[in-house]
């Protein structure tokens, strides 16, 4: 389990994240939602040692994040940020193979190759494995990155806006994979997401941020409620129930 306590960060005198409190449990998908500039990505980056923090702590499996050896932590926690573009050209298989670095330090074993292959199969990428990333569509590329994260074989997975700029088909595909990662593989998956309906339909718990503060958190039913969302987004909300799922309508 990952426990986030009183996490804060200032940037140029402005509090980007302000005393955030959160808990990420295995077997569950947690969505972090909130308006632009609410501090969602910063919170995620701090909870993954990518950004420094001003105060607070992050406990991963009973140990403070700063106490972890970064190489050991890479076997427990994988994080994927948005907008990944590189100077170098990689094939899908080469990218996914990087996921095994924490274990093999670049020298792939038979076991590594098995894991890589099953990650590729899991995301339906076997046929594309020798294609270069820049030859793929945005959706396929995102699948390749998620396959890398999967190959990293960690208990905790953070994804920063995994649906950014994707079409509906790929968005659905990725959300289904994310759900399976949590429910079938017993991982704790944390995603930053803008589309509240995807959060509502595919996630188990929701953490809502506004101006750096956690303003609501809990199960989907508790957070996806008209008054709660209206105050977060400063927009009138109406919650409908379609096939047992809560769907938000926010067209005025």
């Amino acid at each position: 389990m990952i426990q986030v306590n009183q996490l804060s960060k200032c940037y140029q005198g402005k509090k980007v994240v302000d005393g955030a409190q959160a808990q990420f449990e295995r077997g569950k998908v947690t969505a972090i939602i909130g308006p632009n500039g609410a501090g969602k990505s910063t919170l995620l980056a701090m909870a993954a040692r990518l950004t420094s923090r001003d105060s607070g702590n992050v406990i991963i499996d009973g140990k403070e994040i700063a106490q972890w050896n970064t190489g050991q932590l890479a076997k427990r926690l994988a994080v994927l940020r948005q907008a990944n573009s590189f100077a170098m050209r990689f094939t899908v298989q080469e990218l996914v193979a990087f996921g095994r670095f924490p274990y093999s330090k670049g020298r792939l074993t038979d076991r590594d190759n098995q894991v890589i292959h099953s990650a590729l199969a899991y995301l339906d990428l076997v046929e594309l494995k020798d294609k270069y990333l820049d030859e793929l569509s945005g959706g396929q590329r995102q699948m390749a990155f998620i396959a890398m994260v999967l190959a990293q074989d960690t208990d905790y997975v953070y994804l920063d806006e995994p649906l950014n700029n994707l079409d509906i088909k790929h968005s659905l595909q990725i959300m289904q994979v994310i759900q399976k990662m949590a429910h079938e593989m017993q991982k704790a998956v944390v995603i930053v997401i803008h589309d509240i309906n995807f959060a509502s339909c595919y996630c188990d718990t929701i953490l809502a941020l506004k101006h750096g503060k956690v303003v609501a958190s809990g199960a989907v039913d508790e957070v996806i409620q008209g008054p709660v969302l209206s105050s977060i987004y400063e927009t009138p909300f109406e919650i409908l129930t379609v096939k047992g799922k809560r769907i938000c309508s926010y067209m005025v």
Binding site: T70, G71, A74, A78, M88, F98, F101, G106, R107
Partner: peptide, 21 residues
């Protein structure tokens, strides 16, 4: 240092996530 350098080609954040200091 060549294995870690390969990982660094994936940008700093990905490299950190993969356990490179």
């Amino acid at each position: 240092l060549h294995p870690s350098l390969d990982v660094l080609l994936l940008d700093q954040d990905n490299a950190t996530s993969l356990g490179v200091d």
